[in-house]
Design a protein around this nucleic acid. Structure first.
Lengths: 108, 108
DNA sequence: TAATCGTATAAGCAATTGCTTATACATTAG
DNA sequence: CTAATGTATAAGCAATTGCTTATACGATTA
């Protein structure tokens, strides 16, 4: 069961473009160390670190320490509050996503 | 085609709990005047009005004037940036939503 | 051990946000 | 026309946010 606060938290976390970009890079690169994310980022290392903390607190990424590197990867279940919420109101955007309800029930 | 800015805008708009509550009330009540939304809201009429403006600017609701009332209703396509984005990265949360890709393709 | 590398935290600051009260605008009723 | 109702905008303010620089911590290497 997912609370309203969790949904708000996920939305807030993804609502920042820089943080969203970090999240998408983690998605694409599979598992990546913080250093790798700083490389090619417009912002400083502390900024990236703060974004990673926010993503972790929201349950959107998980980390694995390996020596002095910390590798980040996506935690797909972190998106559950968002998906569940979309599913809950699916009848209202049914014209576009007619089968969402069935889909969500099947995947439980 | 939906831009990154549109996605960020939708996320930001839904990320505020008060505004999200207004949006959900519009969903549930179908079509409702601003007055109705102020009733039972924790915040003032101007606050509600500002949230309605934000929702409209994000493309999440549409309005219909009737006399001095303005009725708001959900604009389901406003959620497209969000749904499209989830669909684009579906392989990464496929364990939970295995059929999302097929679904999204069918619904086009 | 000392130096270095990878990462996180602290402190401070400008920008943004969400609210308030006060006021303006738009439409209808008397 | 005047008053009242529904809604929006203006101005101001406290709280939050995202960034920076500086520093600390943790792990490896020389």
């Amino acid at each position: 069961m997912t609370t309203a606060m969790q949904l708000t938290n996920v939305l807030k976390t993804l609502a920042d473009p820089t943080r969203q970009a970090v999240f998408e890079r983690i998605i694409r690169e599979g598992e990546v160390a913080a250093t790798g994310l700083v490389q090619g980022s417009k912002v400083s290392q502390p900024a990236v670190s703060q974004h990673l903390r926010a993503l972790r607190d929201a349950g959107l990424v998980a980390e694995r320490r390996e020596g002095r590197h910390i590798h980040y990867r996506v935690a797909p279940k972190g998106l559950s509050p968002l998906i569940d919420w979309l599913g809950h109101y699916q009848t209202f955007w049914a014209e576009r996503f007619a089968n969402l309800e069935r889909l969500l029930k099947e995947s439980e």
